[in-house]
Design a protein around this nucleic acid. Sequence first.
DNA 1: TCAGTGATGTCATCAGGTGACATCGGCGTG
DNA 2: CACGCCGATGTCACCTGATGACATCACTGA
Lengths: 188, 188
Amino acid sequence: MGRWEPGARSRLRDAALALYLERGFEQTMVADIAERAGVTARTFFRHFADKREVLFDGSSELEEKSVAALEAAPATASALDAVAAALDAVAGVIGADREFARTRQTVIMVNADLRERELIKFASMSAALADRLRRRGIGDTEASLATETGTAVFRVAYERWLNATEERDLREVIRETLAQLRTLTAAG
Amino acid sequence: MGRWEPGARSRLRDAALALYLERGFEQTMVADIAERAGVTARTFFRHFADKREVLFDGSSELEEKSVAALEAAPATASALDAVAAALDAVAGVIGADREFARTRQTVIMVNADLRERELIKFASMSAALADRLRRRGIGDTEASLATETGTAVFRVAYERWLNATEERDLREVIRETLAQLRTLTAAG
DNA sequence: TCAGTGATGTCATCAGGTGACATCGGCGTG
DNA sequence: CACGCCGATGTCACCTGATGACATCACTGA
C-alpha cells in the first residue's frame, strides 16, 4: 500500500457513477472524477483502462464465474442447459441488487459508447463459454449458437427484470424467457 | 458540388480501409487517411462521425432494407419468420461480395473498438426490427427475443460463411443455422 | 537503519474530436 | 451577364482522453 488514503479504486468507481448519473457520461471529465475521489487523473487511468471501463469493473470476474458454472454442469447436459447454468450463476450475482443495477443501467442506456462496451462484455462472455463448450466436444456452430442465443435470452430477461414493477428473482425471469424462446422456435 | 475533386467520401472510405489493413486501425491516424484521400482531417469528420464509422458506412441503409423486408413479410408469418425475411434481405446485400467482407472482417476482428461498433450496429438493427414486430401486435418480450435470437443466428452464420472453404450463398447458411437452432432448443 | 517495492504525483505529449469562421465554386435568379 | 446564395472544404484554436517517462513517498522486511 502507498501513503495515501486506501481504496482509491472504489472511490473512483463511486465518484464516476455518481457524476455520470448527475450530469451525464460525456459531460463528466476524468479530471472531475479524480478530483472527487481525491486523486489525480493519471491515477484514474492506472485503475481503469478508460472512462467507460469504470462502469464494468468486476465483469471479468463475472465471466470467470460463468465459465466455472458451465464447467460444473454435468457432462450429460445439453449445450443449452450448460449455458443456462452459466447464466444462472451470472444472474445470482447481478440479480442481488436491483436498485444498483437500475441506476447503472440508467447511465448506460443513454450513451452509445457505454452501450457498446456493455455489448462487448456480453460478447466476450459468450465467446468464453463457447470455447468451453467446444472443449466438451460440442461442434463449432452449435457451441456459438448456444452461447449467442443464451446471452440473447439473458439480455432480454435482464431488461424485463429491470423494468418489472414487482421485485422478482432474475434467475426465474431467465428461465421463463428461455421457455418462451423454446415455444418461439418450435412454432415455426 | 464544390470546387474540388468529387467523391471525397468514397476516397476517404477506400483510404481508411487500405490503411487499416496495411498498418492496423490504431496505428492509422485520421490525418493519414485524409492525406491519402486528398482532403484535410476536418473534412474526414464532416463525412464520418469518428474514425471507426468509416468502416460502417451504409449500415443505416442496410437497417432500413431489413426493416422494409420485415414489413413486407405476410401478416400471418410468425415473429421468427418475419425476422428471417429481414435477415435474408441483409444477407442479399452483404453476401454479394465475400472478398470485401473478408478483408473488412479481418480489420474489424483484430480491434476491440471496431468489434464494439459492429456489435452496436447489430443491436440497433435488432431494436428496429423488434419495434416493427411490436407494431404488428407481437408482445414485448417475444419481439425482443425473436430479433435478438435472429441476429445471433445471423452472426454465427455470417462467421461460418466467411470462413467456409467453398463459396456459398450466405442466405442458405443462415437457413441452415436457423434450422440448427431449432434442433438445439428442441433438444432440451 | 536501509534498500526495495508499489501506488501515486507531475510533466509532457499525442491523437481524436468539435466549434467558429473564411473561402471557393457552382447554380439559380433577375 | 452579374449577382448573391449555398454547400463543401480549408484553416485555426481548443478541449479532452489517453499514455509514456520520471520523481516521490510510505510501508515492508531484512
